[in-house]
């Protein structure tokens, strides 16, 4: 897995550098970046304070405020500045399913999104989520951090149950700072994803979702009488696979995907639904751009 992360060839990476994550709404917070914002910043006029977080530009610390409150604050101005890009990577056990595995593509896309963001001087944070946030990489910026991203992704196991609602809502570093959140998951969670999306929107995030399903999930070719065992919960369903049941499954799958599409549309969330067998180039340079996630 890790080796796959490291094998992006230079041409691919250079192509990525020409891309940028597209945010629908202005973002706020963070140090200077290449994103046009109505947020307050250095170049135009003072707008606000916020507490210092590691990585902030020392030069923008308001020492007067420190003198008065003995806490570090930085000045916020209406300016062009960096955005916080948070990548929520579903690392539940179900992501390790399919041929090729959904998780592989998800990790690669996490790396791609991180690289594009870093190349655009955005701050990137990665959270591996199951039913909680099991691992998280603090926000960082600069291309130098890309290697750390790959190393972080390499070491992520796929295990545990999926609960996007619980895990994303428990992710604290968002702190109502506007930014971009990208959710990479199969969205096959029993408790759904609605609360998570609402939470992200509440946290003033421009949200993009990438649903990755395996070919086996999109077009099952099983037959006979089967006891289908859930990889995450070990729950099972006994069904006799007939054309009738396969038809019902596809109907349920379509409903599930359509619901996700409808939800994202209502919440102004950019969505892309792909199979895990799609090539990375096609996904990045065609599908993502078609949906407007990147430009």
């Amino acid at each position: 897995m890790g080796s796959q992360m490291k094998t992006f060839d230079p041409d691919f990476l250079s192509k990525l550098e020409r891309l940028a994550l597209q945010n629908i709404r202005p973002v706020r917070g963070g140090t200077g970046g290449s994103r046009r914002s109505r947020a307050r910043g250095q170049a135009i006029e003072f707008s606000d304070f916020r507490e210092y977080t590691p990585g902030d530009d020392y030069r923008r610390i308001d020492w007067n405020a420190y003198a008065r409150f003995e806490r570090l604050f930085i000045k916020l101005y209406m300016e062009e500045r960096e955005a916080n890009v948070t990548i929520f990577l579903d690392t539940s056990a179900s992501m390790n399913y399919g041929e090729p595995g959904k998780g592989i593509l998800a990790k690669k896309m996490a790396a791609v999104f991180a690289y594009i963001a870093l190349a655009n001087y955005d701050r990137v944070g990665i959270a591996a989520v199951t039913d909680t946030v099991i691992h998280q990489h603090p926000y960082f910026s600069g291309k130098a951090g890309y290697a750390r991203v790959l190393k972080f992704l390499d070491n992520l196991p796929f295990e545990g149950r999926t609960s996007l609602n619980k895990s994303i809502q428990s992710f604290e570093p968002l702190m109502s700072r506007k930014g971009i959140s990208i959710v990479l998951s199969d969205f096959l969670a029993e408790d759904g994803y609605m609360d998570a999306f609402h939470y992200l929107k509440y946290q003033q995030q421009d949200v993009a979702a990438l649903q990755i399903l395996s070919p086996e999930e999109l077009d099952p070719s099983m037959s006979g009488a089967l006891r289908l065992i859930d990889m995450e919960t070990n729950e099972h369903v006994e069904v006799e696979i007939t054309p009738r049941t396969l038809s019902l499954y596809k109907k349920a799958l379509n409903t599930h995907m359509e619901t996700l599409r409808q939800t994202c549309s209502n919440l102004e969330i950019a969505l892309l639904q792909v199979g895990s067998d799609i090539s990375l180039e096609q996904l990045v340079f065609e599908k993502l751009q078609q949906t407007g996630m990147i430009r």
Binding site: S94, M95, Y97, G98, K102, T162, D186, L188, A189, E190, S214, E216, E217, M222, L226, R227, L228, I229, D230, M231, E232, T233, E235, H236, V237, Y249, A252, L253, H256
Partner: peptide, 8 residues
Amino acid sequence: MNISSTLL
């Protein structure tokens, strides 16, 4: 047969 999710 193990599958990713029995949700559907």
